[in-house]
Design a protein around this nucleic acid. Structure first.
Length: 292
DNA sequence: TGACAGGGGGTGT
DNA sequence: ACACCCCCTGTC
């Protein structure tokens, strides 16, 4: 398969290899793989390669190039010129823990992923690690997804999931999550536009509505809102963030739901972005101490 | 190389 | 609190 020549993607951002890894493979998205410094990934029907060259982000797509790919990529990666300026609204001046994490992970941001896909992949994510979630996504795409030029496979859409039998889903290593996906697919099939209607709702209502779906609790609802609906105030609390907030913010004994409320209040309208910085930092520190 | 625990970025009861 | 499913990982 032929690929377009590498092109630089503005704006200039102080990327490092580890920031790029955290962005593409740190738990926001599950369809990126790295080979020899080149990241290949897809979202929706877009297939793209990324690499770092001289600290600049470069991209390539299957040739012949489809017009608009660069724009779609900049949107997906949230490469808005004013992203960094917006981060000034985070309470880094009064929060040394956050300030340190933001310093260490400059350029990290929140991807803008398709809402329907985001719901699917996070429904697959409960008590699974990133490698396992990626494997499930790959299996789902292979078994039920669509084909793109070059043999790439999209994730199945919700109408396909609705008619798929549960055994097929279980063959994708979903385990008990297969039942949740069937249940959610039934709701979405019965009510066209269900997901789109989230846009009109305030954060709390959108979150509560998502939590009515089978298999969607507080954490997954917040992930879907943050990564798939641009709700940057969503503050997903998983076991990593729970540990960080207990240890670095002194919230010992707090329950996940209490920590989520604290996070939204303490960090404000960009709480989800703060969460991503803290999360990246926590994962790195844990990786540095395998025995811990 | 292969078998065997142990536990996992959560949800629902 | 505990079951839910099953797969990945570390270990012998």
């Amino acid at each position: 398969m032929k690929w377009t020549p590498w092109r630089t993607l503005p704006p200039p951002i102080p990327w490092t290899a580890s920031t790029l890894r955290e962005l593409l493979d740190g738990g926001q998205a599950f369809r990126w793989t790295e080979t020899g410094g080149v990241w290949e990934g897809l979202w929706g029907c877009q297939v793209v390669r990324l690499r770092l060259s001289d600290g600049k982000l470069q991209w390539s797509a299957p040739a012949p190039a489809v017009p608009g790919t660069a724009g779609a990529l900049r949107h997906y990666l949230a490469l808005d010129p004013d992203w960094d300026a917006a981060l000034d609204a985070l309470p880094w001046r009064s929060d040394a823990v956050l300030a340190q994490a933001m310093q260490a992970w400059q350029g990290l941001r929140i991807l803008r992923q398709p809402l329907d896909e985001t719901l699917l992949v996070f429904l697959c994510s409960s008590t699974k690690q990133i490698v396992q979630i990626k494997q499930i996504c790959a299996d789902l795409a292979e078994a039920l997804g669509g084909t793109l030029p070059g043999g790439y496979r999209t994730l199945p859409n919700w109408s396909v999931l609705h008619v798929a039998d549960e055994a097929t889903l279980r063959a994708c290593r979903l385990g008990y999550r297969a039942r949740y996906i069937k249940g959610t697919a039934a709701v979405l099939a019965e009510h066209p536009g269900w997901l789109d209607e989230l846009d009109a709702l305030p954060y709390a209502d959108a979150r509560a509505r998502l939590m009515t779906l089978p298999g969607v609790g507080a954490k997954i609802a917040d992930c879907v809102l943050l990564f798939g609906a641009g709700r940057l105030e969503a503050f997903p609390v998983d076991t990593w963030i729970l540990k960080v907030m207990q240890q670095r913010y002194g919230l010992h004994g707090w329950k996940p739901e209490q920590v989520a409320t604290f996070g939204r209040i303490h960090f404000g309208p960009l709480a989800g972005v703060a969460q991503q910085f803290l999360f990246a930092d926590a994962r790195k520190k844990s990786a540095a101490r395998p025995t811990q």
